[in-house]
Amino acid sequence: SIVTKIISIVQERQNMDDGAPVKTRDIADAAGLSIYQVRLYLEQLHDVGVLEKVNAGKGVPGLWRLL
C-alpha cells in the first residue's frame, strides 16, 4: 500500500542520514506522488502516532520522523 511505502521511505532515509528527519518533498519524490497527496498521508500517520512532525510554520518545509 502507499502508506507502507511512505513508512519504508522515511525509515530508509532516516537510516541513511543518522536519524535525521525527512522532508515532505523528498518523501513525495521517492513515492512518485505530489507533495499534497503525501502530506495527507503523513498527517494521517501522525494522527495515529506513527510519525512526528519535527517542525511547523507557514512556508517551512515539513520534516518528519518515525516514532
Rank of each mutant, 00 (worst) to 15 (best):
V22L: 04
A30W: 05
E52R: 04
K53W: 09
G57L: 04
V22F: 07
A56L: 09
S34I: 05
D18F: 12
A56D: 12
Q11H: 11
I9R: 01
T4G: 10
V50F: 05
G57V: 06
E52Q: 07
I6Q: 00
G62K: 09
Q37D: 08
A31H: 01
G59P: 04
V3I: 14
S8N: 12
D29W: 08
P61T: 13
R13S: 03
A31R: 01
R65S: 08
G59K: 06
W64Q: 01
I9W: 05
P61C: 15
Q44C: 15
Q37M: 14
Q37F: 12
I35T: 06
K5F: 10
T24A: 04
K53L: 08
A31T: 08
L67K: 14
Y36C: 12
I35S: 04
Q14D: 03
A20M: 09
L67Q: 09
L33W: 02
I6V: 03
R65W: 13
I35W: 07
D26V: 09
Q11N: 08
V54I: 09
R13K: 13
D47K: 15
G32D: 15
I7M: 07
E52K: 03
K5T: 09
I2Q: 04
V38R: 00
Y41G: 03
Q44F: 15
N15E: 12
I7V: 07
G57R: 07
Y36W: 12
E43V: 05
L51F: 04
V10W: 01
S8A: 13
V3D: 02
I6W: 02
L33H: 02
Y36I: 11
L63I: 04
I2Y: 06
M16Q: 10
V48S: 11
N55V: 08
D18N: 14
D18K: 11
R65C: 09
V54N: 01
K5V: 07
D26R: 03
V38H: 00
D18H: 14
A56E: 09
T24Q: 04
G62H: 14
Q14W: 04
I27P: 00
W64I: 03
I9P: 00
Y36E: 14
V60L: 14
L63D: 09
D29G: 07
R13G: 03
L67C: 14
G62T: 15
L40H: 10
V3M: 14
L67P: 12
L42W: 01
P61S: 14
I6E: 14
G57Y: 06
D26T: 09
D26Y: 10
Q11E: 09
V3Q: 08
S1E: 12
G32Y: 03
V50Q: 04
K58E: 13
I35N: 15
L63N: 06
I7S: 01
V10Q: 01
I7T: 02
D26S: 04
L33R: 01
V60C: 13
A20I: 06
H46D: 02
Q11G: 07
Y36R: 13
T24L: 03
Q37Y: 08
Y36N: 11
D29H: 11
Y36T: 12
T4Q: 13
S1Q: 11
I27N: 00
L40G: 08
D26K: 02
Q37C: 13
S34H: 06
V10I: 15
L66C: 07
T4P: 05
V60R: 12
G62P: 15
G59S: 09
G19L: 04
Q44P: 02
L66G: 02
K5G: 03
V54Y: 05
E52V: 09
K53Y: 10
A56N: 11
R39D: 06
P21Y: 09
Q14P: 02
A20D: 07
I27L: 04
S1V: 09
G32Q: 06
Q14G: 05
I9Y: 12
W64G: 02
I27E: 01
G57K: 08
R13V: 05
P61R: 10
S1P: 07
D18E: 09
V38A: 14
P21H: 05
K53E: 07
L51S: 01
N55K: 08
V48F: 14
V60Q: 14
L40K: 13
K23P: 13
A20R: 13
T4D: 12
E12Q: 09
I35V: 11
R39G: 09
E43G: 04
V50K: 05
S34L: 05
A20N: 11
G59W: 05
I7E: 01
P21I: 04
V48N: 11
L51P: 04
E43N: 10
K58T: 11
N15G: 09
A31D: 01
G32R: 06
K53Q: 06
V22H: 01
A20L: 08
K58Q: 11
M16P: 03
V50C: 09
N15T: 10
W64S: 01
L63K: 08
G49A: 02
N55R: 08
I35E: 07
A30H: 05
R13W: 06
A30I: 05
Q14V: 05
V10D: 00
Q44N: 07
E52H: 04
L42C: 06
A28H: 15
V38W: 01
L40A: 10
Q44W: 15
V3N: 04
E52N: 02
Q37W: 10
G19D: 06
V22W: 03
I6F: 01
L42E: 00
V50I: 13
I35D: 06
N55E: 08
E52M: 06
I9A: 07
S8C: 15
L40Y: 13
L45P: 00
G32V: 03
G59N: 08
V10G: 00
M16A: 13
I27D: 02
V60I: 10
A30D: 09
L40R: 12
I27Y: 13
I6H: 00
V60K: 14
A28P: 00
Y41H: 05
A31C: 12
V60S: 14
D26F: 08
